[in-house]
Every structure is written in C-alpha cells, then in structure tokens.
Amino acid sequence: MSKPVFKKLPAPCMAYVMPLLLSIIMSCIVSLISTLKSTGFADFELRLWCGAWFLSWVVAYPVLLLILPLVRKLSSFIVESPTGH
C-alpha cells in the first residue's frame, strides 16, 4: 500500500470542510449560469465569471456555516433517522 499524499484532517474538521467544498462547487455553477445568462455565450469573459464566482463564494461559505444546523434540524422532520427515533 502507498502512503497518503497528505495527512488527513481530524474528524471534527468535517463540519467546516464539507460546507467549504459545497460552497465552492455550488457558487461556481450558479455564478457560471448567472454570468452566461447576463452576458451570453458570445460575450462571456472568464474574468467576469471569476469575479462573480469569488463574490458568490465569499457569501455562500459563511451562509452555509450559519444555516447548516437549521437545515439539519428541518431535514430530521422529513427524513427518518438511522436509529428509527
């Protein structure tokens, strides 16, 4: 077996890493769609999209950190827990 490329973060970091990755991916997709809708394919500029993406991510990450506990609680009303309680 080969050695891992880097040392993994401890398990409690998952509460910050998962929203970080989710916010990066979602803000990327949403800002791309928004930029393309406002500029069109012909006038699309990577610089504009990157600016929109960064601004979207700066908002998205803290919002995800703030609302994730609420979303978990709301989800528990809709989805049965693994233990069945």
Rank of each mutant, 00 (worst) to 15 (best):
L22R: 11
L21V: 13
G51I: 06
T39Y: 04
E45Q: 13
P62H: 03
S56I: 02
R47D: 11
L55S: 15
L64H: 08
L21M: 12
F54M: 11
L46P: 02
A60G: 00
V59R: 09
I25Q: 11
L22F: 11
W49A: 05
F54E: 03
M14A: 11
L64Q: 06
L21K: 06
L36N: 03
G51F: 08
F44R: 04
I25F: 14
Y16N: 01
S27K: 10
F41W: 09
S23H: 00
M26L: 15
V17M: 10
C28N: 12
C50E: 04
W57E: 11
M26S: 15
I25K: 12
L36M: 05
D43Y: 04
L32P: 05
V59L: 14
S27V: 10
A60V: 03
M14G: 03
C28P: 00
A60C: 14
I33Q: 03
L32N: 06
Y61T: 06
W57G: 11
S27L: 09
W53V: 01
L48P: 00
L46S: 04
A42V: 08
A52K: 11
P62I: 06
E45Y: 05
Y61K: 01
C28S: 14
E45H: 12
L32S: 09
V30A: 10
P62A: 02
I24D: 07
V17K: 04
E45G: 06
T35A: 00
Y61R: 02
I33K: 06
W57V: 07
G51K: 15
M26C: 12
A60R: 00
L48Y: 07
I33W: 04
L48T: 11
S31F: 09
L32A: 14
T35H: 02
G51Y: 08
S38N: 06
T39G: 01
V58K: 15
I33F: 07
A42I: 06
L55M: 13
S23A: 15
L21G: 12
C50R: 08
I29E: 05
T39S: 14
L64S: 13
F41I: 06
C28K: 03
G40P: 02
L21A: 12
W53L: 10
L22V: 10
S56F: 08
C50K: 11
F44L: 01
V63C: 11
F54T: 13
T39V: 00
Y61V: 01
S31N: 12
W53A: 13
A42R: 09
V63I: 15
L64F: 15
I25C: 10
L20D: 02
V59Y: 13
L22D: 07
F44Y: 11
L22K: 10
R47T: 14
S31M: 10
M14C: 04
L32W: 13
W57C: 14
G40Y: 02
S38H: 03
L22S: 12
V30K: 05
I24G: 06
G40R: 00
S34F: 05
G51C: 08
V30L: 13
S34M: 05
V30T: 12
S27I: 09
M18P: 00
S31Q: 10
L32D: 07
E45N: 07
E45D: 07
L36K: 03
T39Q: 15
M26I: 15
L48H: 08
C50Q: 08
L21E: 07
